[in-house]
């Protein structure tokens, strides 16, 4: 893939909030997790777990406790932190770094999904306590992000982005990027 195609892929990713009810094949979902595990990880600790949810009963329960999960997605990927490993191997900083790791893994999932013409939406607005219980996670594992995965019923228009010269500085704060 050339750099232009890579940038286009990044720009074409949208947060989809209206899904068809068609399920995504489990193989495709596993591919997405394969992408996740190749994300950078601070000190290569990889204190993460990934859950695939496609069973209707569990999906419905999670949706009920996830106000940020819109549009009835047919599948979910749950990105979880392994807090025991994060703290044991990463020290005090590990607890913070594992969140960055999960975020980078999430982006890998979102981009591969976009390349596969799958629709996604990253969701943080869910009741962690409830979701941890529904998924029967052990006490040291915590759901941190949910990615809704499916097929778009409606693809939203790209929201406005800040201009590069508004958010970039060169070498020092006053170093402006030429327009």
């Amino acid at each position: 893939m050339d750099s232009g195609s890579a940038l286009n892929l990044i720009k074409n990713r949208r947060s989809v909030r209206v899904f068809d009810n068609k399920k995504v094949n489990i193989e495709e979902l596993i591919d997405l997790i394969e992408a996740a595990i190749w994300a950078p990880s601070g000190s290569n600790i990889q204190a993460w777990f990934y859950g695939i949810v496609d069973e209707e009963d569990i999906l419905e329960k999670i949706k009920s406790f996830s106000p940020g999960l819109f549009g009835d997605p047919p599948n979910l990927i749950i990105l979880c932190t392994d807090n025991k490993t994060a703290f044991k191997k990463g020290g005090k900083m590990g607890k913070e770094v594992v969140i960055y790791d999960i975020a980078m893994a999430a982006e890998n999932i979102l981009l591969l999904a976009t390349a596969k013409n799958l629709a996604t939406c990253c969701v943080k607005s869910f009741n962690k306590r409830a979701v941890n219980k529904i998924l029967k996670l052990p006490e040291y594992v915590s759901a941190e992000l949910i990615i809704a995965v499916g097929f778009a019923q409606r693809i939203p228009v790209a929201p406005k982005r800040k201009q590069l010269n508004q958010i970039t500085f060169i070498n020092e704060w006053e170093g402006k990027l030429n327009e």
Binding site: E60, S64, F65, P67, N127, A130
Partner: peptide, 13 residues
């Protein structure tokens, strides 16, 4: 109950 779950999750969130 779904509405109740949504409301209580929202109240917390």
């Amino acid at each position: 109950y779904k509405v109740l779950a949504y409301l209580v999750s929202s109240a917390r969130g």
